Amino acid sequence: MARTGGAVSGGIDPERPSSARVYDAVLGGKDSYASDRAVVDDLLAVAPGLGELARDNRAFLARAVRYLAGTVGIDQFLDCGSGLPAEENLHQIAQRANPDATVVYVDNDPMVAAHGRALLTENENVRFAAGDLTDPAALLAEPVVARGLDWSRPIALLQLSTLHHVPDEVGMPELMARYLDALPPGSFLVLSHIFQPGAEDPEAAALAERLEATFLNSALGSGWFRTREEITACFAGAEIFEPGLVVLADWWPDGPRAEPLEPVRRLLLGGIARKE
């Protein structure tokens, strides 16, 4: 499920699938090409309920931003790997709680860039920067990021369904440590990542293995399911809020769950942490 990876490109290549467009297609969006839909078709053949998992991710974003903007009072958001617009967008949720909230979207997909820059004409507190999240120093030095946010005050950093497209050799915990080191005290990290539950949930673990093989053998070539311990390492140096790192449907749900979750919906974990 997701949205980033690779170098910033100056143009759209319809022959090569994009994680942003694949994610949009799984959500039911229309901003995709045949190459993206071929990946989605293969994934849906393994897990027909994958769209529900993508919608869980969007719902988690909405609840997390409502909490941070409305309850905590965070008014600055940096969304790395923001992806294509999908109702509701982060800035719409945050600005409903605080009309003055500032949102900076960052992505390396040229189609996302076109949509992101269109938002600039609609809202003066929304900004977009092209950047590769695997290079924190360059991303944070982008003028739109460096000057568009007040780095003397808390910022909410979102990494939603992005890091599972980052290969192990990049060093995911070290990557996130660089982001957390740069954030002001009192800032928050909101993160979701596809999950390999192993022995704690054998049925879902078997599905995770099949989905990972499909991701990696596709033209997309990325999508690693990681263990709870590996995902938790991304929060090192920050305090994870209750209920901890959990299946997204269980992170402060809007209402009681009517029935058990299908295995596919148990394959995405998320949480929020605060930097002291």
Rank of each mutant, 00 (worst) to 15 (best):
E142I: 02
G223L: 06
H165E: 13
G5W: 08
L90S: 05
R127F: 10
Q196Y: 12
H164T: 05
P85S: 06
G73I: 10
G244R: 05
E52V: 08
Y23M: 09
V247Q: 02
N123I: 07
R210G: 08
L61N: 00
G83Q: 11
G70L: 04
A138Y: 13
T134E: 13
M172Y: 15
K275Q: 05
R63L: 07
F60S: 04
K30W: 15
I194V: 11
W251F: 07
W251T: 02
A54H: 03
D254T: 09
N98H: 12
P184G: 06
L180N: 08
V39D: 01
S161D: 09
S19Y: 12
F188H: 03
R117I: 03
H91V: 14
G237Y: 13
A205V: 13
V46G: 09
L133H: 02
L84T: 02
F128E: 00
D107H: 05
D31C: 04
P243V: 10
V46M: 12
E230S: 10
D250Q: 12
L61D: 00
A69P: 00
G116Q: 02
P167W: 14
L149G: 04
A101K: 02
F225L: 04
A101G: 03
R37A: 14
N89F: 05
D132P: 01
A86I: 07
I272Q: 01
R3T: 09
D254L: 09
N108K: 08
P256R: 10
A20P: 00
V103R: 03
T214H: 07
N89G: 01
